[in-house]
Each structure stands twice: as C-alpha cells, then as structure tokens.
Design a protein around this nucleic acid. Structure first.
Lengths: 236, 236
DNA sequence: ACAAAAGTGTTTCAACTACACCCATGG
DNA sequence: CCATGGGTGTAGTTGAAACACTTTTGT
C-alpha cells in the first residue's frame, strides 16, 4: 500500500425530474456544518470498497428510494479545487441522475429536509446553494440539455411505458420550447432503437395513444434537433 | 479539518497529436513498480494545493515541455474502482490534451522513456498498457472524435497559424476518412468563429493558401458532419 | 354531432454532396 | 507551357418545417 490518501473523495448528485410541467432538481437542506441550513446537492463520502457509480447509486437510493437499476445515472465531472470545501481537500465526482416523477423524496441521514425545486429558480440564483454546487448544477444541466439531442436520454424521465406525447413534453420542458407534435412523432418513431411499441394503448382525451418503452439505441440517428426558424409553406 | 483523506488522487493524461499523417498518443515506459517496464499514460499524484487542471498542466509540461497555455486540456472522466491500482485506493482524473506536432518529448521523472505511438496500434491491443489505461484511452479517444464534429477542437492540433488544408488533414487523420477539400473549405470558413484569417499566405506547391488562426467560437454552427454517401449530380 | 388528441400526407424551402471550373504559383 | 493545390459556382438530391387532413376515442 504505497499510495497514501491525499484527498477526501465524495460523490454529489444532480437528480432531475419533470413534474408539474417543470424541470426540477432534488436538493437537501444541510443538517450539519458547514453551510448548516443551506440547500445543497445530495451527496456523501465514497466507501472504502465502493466504486464511484455504486456510491452515487447508494446516495440516490437514500434520498429518493429509487434503486440505480430504475434510474439513469452517469458521471459528469470532478471538482477538486483546494478551498472548495472548508473541511479540507474534498474532491467530488458529480453524477447526473434522471428519473420519472417520483412523488415525495425521503430525507437522507445528514439532511434535515429534502425537496424538489424548479430548476429555473435555482439557476437564476433565487435559491443559493452551498459550496460550489451552483456551478456543479449548471454544468450538469448543460450536459443534460445537450444530450437530449443526440441520445435517447429523455426516455429516462418517463415511466417504463409512455406515449410519444409524454416524451415530447419532456423535451419541451427541458429545452423550454414548444415542438410540433406531428413532426416530433415522426422523428421519434423514425430513429431506430429510440422507442419500441408495446402494442398497448392509453386513452386520456381524444384518440388513444400507442404506448412505448425505451429502445436499445445509445445514440440517435438522426438526432432530434431543436426546430429552427425555417421557412416552408403548406400544400394540400 | 473534519474530512479525512480516503483516496489517493492522481491525474492521467491522454496526450494526442497528429504526426506523420497518423493520430499518435504519448506513452511513458514505467520506471518503477507496479507494471515496471510496461507502457502507460503519463500522470502523477495531485499536489496538496493544486487544482486538478493545474496538476494535469504540470504533468504535461514535465512530459512534453509544452505549457498549458499553448495546449488544449480538458477533463474527460474519473476512474476509481477499488482494485484498479494494486497500491491501494487510487482515483485518477483523466485529462485529454491536444497539441501540434511537437518533435521529440522529454521523459518525465519516474518514466524511463517516453514516446509517441500511433493510436491504431494501441487501440488494437498490439501495445498493452498498464493498469486500466486501455479503457481510459478508449474513452478519451471517443470523446475527441465526437467533439471534432461540433467544436473547434481540431484547431488545437494545428500550430498558431495554419491553412484550411492543414485543418482538413487533422479531420481526415482523426476520423480516418477522406474529405472533399472544396466542401470542407466552405464549411470551415462559413462556421462563424471557427477560424479567423490573418491576411498572410503560405506557399508550398500550387496556389498560395491563406493562413488562419483559431477563432473564438466554442461550438460550431453548423457542425462539421462527416460527408455521407448521398446522391447529387454535377451541373455546369 | 362535436371536441380533443393521435397520427399521416404533401408542399416548399434549406442544406449538402458532388463535381465543373477558375485562380495563383513553381518549374 | 503544364502540374499542383487553393478556392468558387452550381445542379441534383435529401431531409426537415409547416400545416391540411384523416383517424379514433369520450361526452
């Protein structure tokens, strides 16, 4: 064992969901110093025999009750500036987690409180965050928004079975732009491996919608680009 | 100081360049155990008061003589599986560095030897790497290839002043496909902020080529997609 | 019948590939 | 002059945005 520890290693989580037509992030109110009482991203120290992904999955389950099998989790970056944590050299590996609307979260062990907050308010600075968590959140959000275009990531916000309209609402919420339902439908069903029909349907209002589950594609060909202000008339 | 160190933190570098019409990676032959005598990515432990980027820049300078001001360096991911290093819990933050053809590298302090190796041979497994470095390299390469499409990253492989043909050769080498020089020229000069004309020219054979420097764009609109087999006749 | 949402067909525009062609230099 | 590479013009094709229209349900 010639490698002596020189840093305290943690994982922090940017847990996102779409609820009430808004993109929301899971925050915890810190129950212990430093930054006692402030909102922060959930996270904690990495165990001695734990992989980084396992540590992230464990924290996720502590805060939300969702296991990592049901949730998309990926690493987004590592932050280790000396001075980012007053307790010493704390290096954190930030993970992005996406899940369908889960209802109320469970509070973690060292968190007095945990709650979903609209991303808009946090991004605007109206809800200040502890440590450098505002930056971690901003970087993770940028990653999530970009990845919607070329990966089937958006399905991670949907329950196991969902309609094309459900999926469209995810894009509209995360990007903050309206999309044409008809063109969106075509793009989604045309991209191989994006979604897979179950054969079942669901009726809420109007014509019943087909139900889909996630496909096995890891990238989208062609990507789902945001519609740009282009011309184009009507025929018919 | 309530946060006790629980991991040894290192940075590893995937340093890429284009030389002799090949994508090449900087490897060091390990001079000390473990894996003594094997090829590995350059890297080392992070200093107590050093940021991760600064540590990567320091290692880069030790191995290549290039300072971080002249080189593109970005973080790509962090690897911390217990057992990835026999010396104990060693967590490494991998950085990708791109530079123009530098000539011969300087060997680092704990490296008996350092050398540029064609990526092809390393990716194919012909040159085995120490630790989990084959995986770190593969992930970094995937990142680099993808980022060429939508970012001006390719200019990092070019000297401060370069021609459009220089830039095209970078793409052709990294992607391994030939590109139409005429369409490439148009795409590059049409993307705002990609390159900036210096007004000077350089003559090697044929008509003199304009010299450009890097522009200030961080993303490319539109992206430089690989040409696909499409139809299209010739007119005129 | 009417409203509402799902899903299809078609027009029109924009972007891109492929290639002819012109430009500027060295030998 | 010719060879070589830089750079521009343009036709045919693909793909996507816009939107009329049809389908299938609930009330």
């Amino acid at each position: 064992m010639t490698a002596r520890p020189n840093a305290a290693l943690t994982v922090d989580l940017v847990v996102l969901t779409v609820r009430a037509d808004e993109l929301q992030v899971l925050l915890v109110r810190r129950g212990i110093p430093p930054f006692e009482g402030a909102w922060a991203l959930p996270g904690g120290f990495v165990g001695a025999e734990e992989t980084l992904l396992a540590a992230a999955g464990r924290e996720l389950e502590e805060e939300t009750g969702f296991g990592p099998e049901q949730v998309h989790v990926e690493q987004v970056g590592t932050y280790g500036d000396p001075g980012r944590d007053p307790r010493g050299r704390v290096v954190t590996v930030v993970h992005l987690a996406l899940l369908p609307d889960p209802g109320v979260p469970r509070a973690g062990t060292d968190a007095a409180e945990a709650d979903w907050r609209p991303v808009r308010g946090v991004e605007s600075g109206a809800v200040p965050l502890a440590f450098d968590h505002a930056r971690l959140l901003a970087d993770a959000l940028e990653r999530a928004r970009a990845k919607l275009e070329y990966s089937p990531l958006a399905t991670a916000f949907c329950p196991p079975e969902f309609t094309v309209a459900d999926l469209r609402r995810v894009y509209e919420t995360v990007w903050g732009v309206p999309l044409d339902p008809r063109n969106f439908h075509r793009k989604v069903t045309a991209a191989p491996g994006f979604v897979e029909a179950t054969g079942r349907t669901r009726t809420e209002r109007g014509r019943p919608a087909q139900l889909f589950r996630r496909g096995d594609a890891r990238v989208l060909h062609p990507p789902l680009v945001r519609e740009r202000p282009a011309a184009g008339g009507d025929g018919g």
